[in-house]
């Protein structure tokens, strides 16, 4: 527990100096996406890894943040800094309202219901052409700016996005080790026992669902303002699955694992350029292998592997 602040500090420093190593260039753009995806994966992990509630509709909340921000700024001419919290608030309210009936469902049913929700949101993005521009998307979304500093380059966006991402990660690490995080994990392990201990499981699940949606919405706003263009294709069912894959590959219930998963899945298509058609097969295969052989995810699986290898080597040395 005492090591947590240092771990975070080390991570934050690495994030700050990373651009020096890459000297700008195309990779900076990818690293902006790593930041946004990390935020999303951490948000989903709060729900899935801590509270044990699955969602296959998070791309929908991400998209709502992006579109609300986009519409309020590009169409209505608001200041982005005002649009962002307002979008988050709206998504938070909607998520809370949906959470009450949807979180009564468990396991497979919850998965299907959230999936359905995500698809409905996706269809709305496509069909409300007057608002969203439909399948061809919404363009002309302004960049964020502080005074005369406009976040319009990859390097500036990198620091902008990662400031938010680091904040979200810090909050989540704190939350995980606190009274609330403990209650969430208790609900995950045994809901009935948690309730007997006085934990209001129902309310807690709704709250964490809403929180997770709000963070996703913020990530969506950041996405809209850094990309200056959004279209429905980024917020479909496939992206919800991709987020799930990030969380599972990284490790359920680990904030840093979510970063690992997000980084891996964001960088993978870049590494596989040329073999682009293979990425869907690789996602599927990766997901399957992880669930079967490393259900704890990379954060737990890799140290485990090293330990086992060290033991093997020791065994060989003794023999």
């Amino acid at each position: 527990m005492k090591r947590e602040p240092f771990k975070f500090l080390l991570f934050a420093v690495l994030v700050l100096v990373a651009p020096l190593a890459f000297k700008g260039g195309y990779l900076m753009n990818v690293l902006v996406f790593v930041g946004i995806n990390t935020m999303l994966a951490v948000a989903l992990n709060l729900l899935l890894g801590y509270a044990g509630q699955i969602s296959l509709g998070h791309a929908g909340f991400f998209g709502m943040g992006a579109y609300l921000s986009g519409i309020l700024t590009a169409t209505c001419g608001w200041n982005p800094w005002l649009a962002m919290p307002l979008a988050a608030l709206a998504v938070g309210i909607l998520a809370t309202l949906i959470a009450f009936p949807i979180l009564k469902l468990k396991g497979h049913y919850l998965a299907m219901a959230t999936l359905g929700l995500g698809i409905i949101i996706y269809i709305v993005f496509n069909e409300t052409v007057d608002l969203t521009g439909g399948p061809s998307g919404l363009s002309g979304i302004p960049n964020l700016a502080v005074g005369s500093l406009v976040f319009d380059s990859d390097i500036k966006n990198y620091y902008l996005v990662w400031t938010f991402t680091l904040a979200v990660m810090l909050f989540s690490v704190n939350l995980a080790g606190s009274r609330i995080g403990r209650a969430l994990r208790a609900v995950h392990d045994s809901e009935v026992a948690a309730r007997v201990m006085g934990v209001n499981a129902r309310l807690l699940k709704v709250q964490v669902f809403a929180l997770s949606a709000v963070i996703s919405s913020l990530a969506g706003s950041l996405y809209a303002h850094t990309m200056t263009f959004v279209s429905p294709a980024s917020f479909g069912f496939n992206f919800s699955i991709e987020l799930l894959t990030m969380v599972v590959i990284g490790g359920l219930g680990s904030v840093y694992g979510s970063f690992l998963g997000a980084a891996l899945l964001t960088l993978l298509p870049e590494l596989l350029r040329g073999a682009q058609d293979y990425d869907i097969v690789i996602y599927g295969g990766l997901l399957m292998v992880m669930v079967m052989f490393m259900p704890g995810g990379l954060v737990r699986g890799i140290p485990d592997l090293f330990r086992r290898m060290a033991r093997l080597r020791e065994g060989a040395g003794n023999a």
């Binding site: 497979h108 998965a111 699955i241 799930l244 869907i280 996602y283 599927g284 997901l287 399957m288 669930v291």
Partner: peptide, 25 residues
């Protein structure tokens, strides 16, 4: 090894992606 509902959801999703991807290839 751990057939919890979440793992089962994930493994069948993984299977579906894999089958779809192979069909595409």
């Amino acid at each position: 090894r751990q057939p919890t509902p979440i793992n089962l959801v994930i493994i069948t999703i993984a299977g579906s992606i894999l089958i779809r991807g192979l069909a595409m290839l």
